[in-house]
Design a protein around this nucleic acid. Sequence first.
DNA 1: GCTCGCGCTGTAAACGTTTTCGAGAATAAG
DNA 2: CTTATTCTCGAAAACGTTTACAGCGCGAGC
Lengths: 334, 334
Amino acid sequence: MSIREVAKRAKVSTATVSRAIHHDSRVNSQTAERVWRAVRELNYYPNVHARSLASGRSHIAGLIVSDITNPFFPELVQGFAEAALESGYDTLVASTNYDAARTSLAIRRMLERKADGVAIMTSEMDESLIAELKNRNVPMVFLDVAAPGRLISNLRVDYADGVGTAVRHLISLGHRRIAFLSGPDNLKSARVRREAFLECLSNAGLAIEDPRMVTDGGHRIDGGFDAMQRLLALDERPTAVLASNDLTAIGALRAIRNAGLRVPEDISVVGFDDIQLAAFTDPPLTTVRLPRTEIAERAFECLARNMDLGQEDGAEPVIATKLIVRASTAPYRG
Amino acid sequence: MSIREVAKRAKVSTATVSRAIHHDSRVNSQTAERVWRAVRELNYYPNVHARSLASGRSHIAGLIVSDITNPFFPELVQGFAEAALESGYDTLVASTNYDAARTSLAIRRMLERKADGVAIMTSEMDESLIAELKNRNVPMVFLDVAAPGRLISNLRVDYADGVGTAVRHLISLGHRRIAFLSGPDNLKSARVRREAFLECLSNAGLAIEDPRMVTDGGHRIDGGFDAMQRLLALDERPTAVLASNDLTAIGALRAIRNAGLRVPEDISVVGFDDIQLAAFTDPPLTTVRLPRTEIAERAFECLARNMDLGQEDGAEPVIATKLIVRASTAPYRG
DNA sequence: GCTCGCGCTGTAAACGTTTTCGAGAATAAG
DNA sequence: CTTATTCTCGAAAACGTTTACAGCGCGAGC
C-alpha cells in the first residue's frame, strides 16, 4: 500500500506515480491512466505524514476559538471546517477557555502540527504569542482586532450597520423611547455597538436625554434581567429596548414578563447575535444576526489566499449583519 | 531547529537526543540533562510529521459526530479533546451531517491522517465503513450501539435508570397520572426510554390503562407541542408528563401555557438530556441529565486502553444519568 | 549528420524522526 | 585476571513521500 507498490504495478517509477497523483501536466495521459488504475486497484492513498515531511506542507488549517461550548462557536467551527475540507485541508480546532495558558498551548499545538494557516477567532490573544507564528510565516486571520498586514488578514464586522437597521426597525414601528442594554466596556465590540446606538438615535433626531436609558446588562441573562428592571422603574419607561447581546435580551424578556407586562404588546425587545436560543425564546426574539457561517468561510478564504494562491498580503473583508424579525417587536401602541 | 542541531549542541548523536526526549531510561541522567538544556536553548520541538512517519503513530484521535451544531455535541467534543490533550493526542473532529457520503468521507479522513483511534458518536454508521478501520487495526469506541469486541469498545447509557429516577421523582411528589411523550421509534434510545417508562410505572403499580397517555412527540419542539395538546384534550388529563427529550418537553411547556395552565402548579414536566436550553426555559426544566462530558472522557479512555496500554480487548463502561431538579416539577395538588 | 529542444520518465537525494544493532566502557562475577 | 553482564551511546537503516536533476528518444532546424 505504499507508492512503490503502485509504481511497480503501473510499471513506472515512484516519481511518476507522485506526479500523476498530483495531476502534473508533464506526465503522459496514458501513463497517468495506468497509474490511476493501479491506485484504484490497490485502494491506495498517500501517507500524509510522509507527504507533509517531504513537501513541507501539512494541509492542516488551525482554528482557535474561545470556547466551543459557547453557542456562538459551533457554527463557526462547522463552517470553517467545511470550507477547509473543500480545499483539501483538515481543521485542527483548539479551545482557549478564555485562559492565557491554554491559549499559549493552542498556539504551540498549531506550531507543532505545522498548520499551514491559523484562524484566531478569540479576543484574548497576546501579541507575543502570535509572534512565533509570524516568524514561521504562517498566515493568520483575526476577527475584528487590528489592521491586516503581511500574511495577516482581519475580518471586520459592520456592527454599526447592524445596530442601525435594528434601531430603524424600531423607529419605523413608531417607537420613540428606545433604551439600550449595553455590554461590558472592556469588550471592543460592546463599545462599538453602544456608540453606534447613540449615534444612530441622534441622527434620527431622537438623541437620548436621560442617561439612565443606556444601562449595563453585562452580556448575561441575569445582567439583562437587572438592567431591565432598572428601566422599568423609570418614570417614563422605554417602549422598546435594544440589547447588545441576545443573552441580555433574554434576561430583559424575563424581567418584563415578571413585571406583569407583555412582549411585544407593551414593550418591544431586540437582541444581537442571533444565537440558536433566540429562535426558541417566548416570544421568539427579533435580533440582529451575526452571520457565523459567513465569518467562517471568509476566514478560511483569507487563509487560502496566502496558503494556496501565494499572495503575501492580508485581506480585510467586511461582514454584514442582518436583522431577523421574529415576534418580540411590534408597532408602538400609544 | 532539527534534532541534528540539538545533537550537535549537546555533543551526542540524534539517537540519544531522541531517547532523551522520550525519557528513555537507558540514557544517562547527565547526558539527558545536557540534551534538555540544548533543547531549551534552541527552543526545539520535534517535527510531528517526521515522528509520525518514523514511529507509525500519529498521536491523533478521531472523533466523528453527527452534527457539531446540535447542542448535544459541543460539550462532547470539548470533553474528548480535553481528555485527548492530556494524553498528548490532538483531536480530529468530523461531522457527518447525518449523511452517508459525508460519513464515508469522515472515515476516509481518519484513515488518511492515520488516527490512532476513533470515537464514533453517531448512530448513522454503516458496518461496511468501519470495516476498513477494523482491518487497519485502529481502535474504535461507539455510543450505545453494539457489543464490544477486539479493539472495539462501547459506551452503554443506563437509560432505564434515568427514566426510573425521573418517574420515582414524580411519584414521590404525589403524581399518579403520568404521561409519556415518546420519541421516534426508529431510534433505539427512544425505544429504550419508552419501554423503561412503561415498566417502571407498572412496577410501581401504576400501569397505564389508557394507551393515549403515551404519545409521540418526535423529539422536536413542535412535536412536543402537538403531543401535549392531545394529552390536554383527554377527559382525565395527566398531572405530570415525562418527555423522551428536552425539546419535546419544551414544546409541552408551550402547549400547557397556551392552554391557560401553569407549570408546575397545574402540570409537572420532566425532560431528558439536559441540553443547555433546559436551564433557560420558563420555568427552568427539571430533566434527566445525560452526562456529555463524562461520555466524552470515557470514550477517550476506552481508546487509550488500546492505544497506550496495549490492551487488545474492548471495554463497555456504563454511563449513569442524573436527575436535575429545577422548577418544572412540583407536588401534586389534588 | 549534428545539434537543439521538447516531452516524458527515472534516479536519487532530501525531509526529520525512530529504532535496531552493535560496540565500547565500566562493572560484576567467577 | 578473565569473562559475563550491564550501561550508555552512536551508526545507519528504515518510514513514504516530493522534487531537483539528469537522461532518453525523437522530430525539427540547420
